[in-house]
Amino acid sequence: MLKSALASLLLTGATLSHAFAGEIWVSNEKDDTISVIDEATLEVVRTIEVGERPRGITFANDHSVLFLCASDSDSVQVIDPETGKVLHDLPSGEDPEQFILHPDGKRLYIANEDDAITTVVDVESRSVIAQIDVGIEPEGMAVSQDGKYVITTSETTNMAHWIDTASEQIVANTLVDQRPRHAEFTPDGKELWVSAEIGGTITVFDVESKAEIAKIPFEIQGVHRDRVQPVGFEMTTDGKFVFVALGPSNHVAVVDMKTKKVIDNVLVGRRVWHMAFNADESLLFTTNGLSGDVTVIDAATQKPIKTIKVGRFPWGAAYRPTN
């Protein structure tokens, strides 16, 4: 109720900077820039030039620095979010696409798309701790809440590789459908969800047994099944909802995390790819690659409330509180 009231205030253009003090950072793959969206005004307030083909984007746990995969520069750039300046590069292996920061804040696990490797980098000493052979075209990266497992999904091998972070070794490989793109652990740490773009499904694994426990299909009326392609997704921390980007079907599905049923589909921009929540998870920002914009979804009403033009081919998104 409150959330929707706030959303309608936003629609009327009211500024609520005291309530919403934060920014959404969006990597623009084909512009070599980051667009910074102010959460209060829902406008792009800064455009920052970065390395070539920026994709994976995440903040340090204390939000003091931004990590960015500059894929074609073969580096992970560390950026000061205040100034937008590149502080230094991390050794990343070739063609870093996506990464995940371990809860220890120290280890960054990077998927090297061209090399079938996951590189583990110590962000403090700026050195490579380990390189782990994974399947072809590693992409999706996830870490369990307790930090025990890191997942790499490989697009052409069609697996989720379970990396034990104590030994930095693969301890299990679980098959999923074609072209896995993204992985997330549920907030309770009991399940792993993996999306398969071409397979058109999300596979859910039980973390303890690593057995498949569910497969979620998606459907959009008027769009052929083969074009409904789940890619990035985000879970609400209350364990209720999962928002799933469905790529070229231009929709975001809302899935009930418990029943694993799709309860709604939200129309967004073209080829929706990844997304990020704001701090209180009232707003969801989706990157729409082909239309070059970001759709803002009111998480409570599950309605799109605004479209924001950003750079060419927006890919990833990350939230940063500013107060």
Binding site: A172, N173, E208, S209, K210, A211
Partner: peptide, 18 residues
């Protein structure tokens, strides 16, 4: 079924597939 098989595999501590 795959669950029950895979749990057994897990108990045997084999990598899960293959």
């Amino acid at each position: 079924l795959s669950h029950s098989i895979q749990s057994m595999r897990a108990k045997n501590q084999y990598p899960l597939v293959g």
